[in-house]
Structure formats: C-alpha cells, structure tokens
Amino acid sequence: MKNRVLSVDIFRGATIILMILVNTPGTWSNVYAPFLHAKWHDYTPTDLVFPFFLFIVGTSIVFAYKNKEATANTYKKISIRSLKLIGLGLFLGAFTISFPFIKEFAAIRFPGVLQRIGVVFFFAAILFLNMDWKKLVALSAALLLGYWAIMTLIPVEGVASTLERAPHNLANYVDVKVFGTHNYKPDYDPEGLLSTIPAIVSSLLGIFTGLIITSKRENKTKQMVILGIAMVILGHVWDLVFPINKALWTSSFVLVTAGWANLVLALIYFLTDVKGIKFGSIFRYAGANAIVVYFLSSFITKLFYLIKVDGETSVHGWLFNNIFVHDFMPMEFSSLLYGLAVVAFYCLLAYVLYKRKIFIKV
C-alpha cells in the first residue's frame, strides 16, 4: 500500500500487542483490574482493545479499497480474505493435541475473535464499496438504533428481554438456538451472532476516520478529536438506558469505544504524521503482520496450556511458577511480567519478519 500513514500502522500494532498482553497473564487468578474485562456492564481499558482493532479494520479498508471498483474480482478477494480469517478462528476453536487433533464436535466453539474479524471485514468492505459516507452514516445509525430496539423490546419466550445474563437475554437466546453447545459459555458468548451486527458498525465508524485521514482537508487531528469526544459523550448518555457492555456489544459500547479510538489515533496521528516525531516502531512492526502475530500467539498459548511437563503441570504453569513467581513479588506483578515476556517475544518475532520483508497477508 503506497503512502502508508504511520499512525494507522502504529495503532494497529499497539492494539494487537495489547490483545496478546491481556490474553496471556501468568495466572487468571491474579490480574490487575485494568487488565481484566468488566464483569458485565461498564468497561475497563481491556474492553477497548477488541473494538479498537475492528475500528482500525475499518480505517484500513479505506486505504485498501478507496480506489477500487466494486467488481466481481474485488468481491472475490474480500470473500477469500474473510473466509481465511473465519477458517483460522475455527481451527483455533477446534484444535486439540490429542489425535485426531480435533475436539469432539459438541465441544467446538463456533464464534470467536478471528471469526468476528472476518465477518465484520466482509460486510464493512462490501458496504464501503457500494455506499457513500452519507449512506454509511444513515446505515450505522439505523443498525445501532435497531439493535437497541430488538434487544430491549423483543421478549424471550414470553418474558421481557433483559440486558443481564441468561436466560432472558435475547443475544444469548439467539446464540443458543443457532449454535447450541458451540458457545463460549452457556449464558453468553462475547462474539455471538446477534452482537456481530453492532460490531460491524465499530468498523464502519473506523471507515469515517479513514475518510478524514485520506481527505485533503486541513485540521484532520481536530476533526478526529471532535468526532471522538462527541462519540464518547453520546455513548455515555446512551448508557443510561442501554448500558455499555462488551459481551452484548451494545450500541453505547460501540460509540464509546469508537470515540476513544478516535482520540487515541488522533494523538498518534498528530505526533507522527503531523509533527514527524519518530516513535512506536515496534508497534509498526507488529502492525505489518498483525493477524499472523495474533494467530501464532493464540495457537502457541493454547499449546502451552495443553502440553503437560510432568503429566500434571502445563508448560504455561511450569514457566510461570518457576521463572516469574517469587516470594518478594505480588502475584499480580508476577502475572503481568509473564504477559510482558510473551509480548516481548512476539514483538521480536514481528521485528524479524519486518526486517526480512516477510509480510504474510491473510
């Protein structure tokens, strides 16, 4: 891609690194609060990470497809990329170390992070190719309002739908009916079917920021800041009647997270692309192979949990307990150090790939 915008690459890479960090603590029993998801309503810094990535997917779509025509060949490439992402996600969900290396069918989780990225990318890219920004704004508003309406007005088996955990939660009800046992947990799936609709809007909102960055307007940073503040405020106002919730990917959650994404990206854009300050190269390296780095981290982490060192302790547990756990350190700090060590490894891997000009497109 010609004329790459440095801030977008840094933002993408930093998001992937944060995704790896929050997904690989030394022990889930001892994690600092900011590195955990909110228990249900509200949000923590960790809850911003995945929507940030979907947001930057939308921003990147503008760079990749702004000058492309909506042809059969373009649709084919979009479809193939989407299917690759979904396939990788399904592989992660189905893999096990016991022959034949696939879980029992009933135990395989169908939704997932990569699956959601694939679906969101597909719809966001197709919509971008066929709609101008005004139509995309109208569609985004309609989807967020529509999701609010169906989540609060449609009863579940004759009982008024709630926004709490199952059983009277429409999103979970749909997931159970469609996927059966193939969900993250019996009472909710954070990447469920119905909540993918507002997740698409997270990417569409990233498209609007991409259009700002690629435009010939002046004061782009100011526009992103204003847009970001407006979204954060509107999202928190909406929170009063439609609580901010990552598991349900509520409309208020979409606005708040996209607002923060705009503000963070605006800061990085101002420092790097406007002022020319050089920083964050390691994030740029990770951003160049973002999906590959994320997939490898997820796959290797899974192996570390599945492979046993002495028949009982996993590789993950052995490394954590023997290298990072010490009497003079709080367990939360030990857990964080483990995550940082994992991040350091994948940053090094990203650096080597980048320097050797190895860019694996999924």
Rank of each mutant, 00 (worst) to 15 (best):
V31P: 14
L127H: 13
G87E: 12
F283G: 07
E218N: 12
I233W: 07
I358T: 13
L271R: 14
L193E: 03
E69M: 00
L129V: 08
M19W: 03
L265Y: 04
S140H: 09
V8G: 06
F208L: 11
V119L: 15
G180R: 14
L353F: 04
S215V: 07
F95C: 08
V362N: 13
G112H: 10
H236Y: 08
L48V: 03
S335E: 01
D187W: 02
I117N: 12
P186N: 03
F63C: 05
T24C: 03
L136N: 10
G317M: 02
G87K: 14
L163T: 04
I108S: 15
P330N: 13
I233K: 11
V343G: 00
E332F: 05
S7N: 12
M151R: 07
I226K: 12
D9M: 03
A64S: 15
G235C: 12
N169D: 14
R4V: 02
W260K: 00
F128Y: 15
R284Y: 11
S334K: 10
H41V: 10
F101Y: 15
L303R: 09
I282A: 11
G13L: 03
Y305G: 04
A160N: 11
H326D: 15
V241L: 09
S251M: 06
F333K: 12
P100C: 06
A344F: 13
L336I: 07
Q223T: 04
Q223R: 12
A266N: 11
T96V: 04
V232A: 09
H182D: 10
F95Q: 11
V201K: 04
L194I: 03
G93M: 14
S298P: 03
N172P: 14
G180F: 07
L240M: 10
F270A: 10
G206S: 06
I97E: 10
L83G: 07
V201W: 07
A344E: 12
L337S: 15
H182G: 13
V178M: 11
I17C: 06
I268Q: 07
L145V: 05
G287W: 01
L145Q: 02
F122A: 03
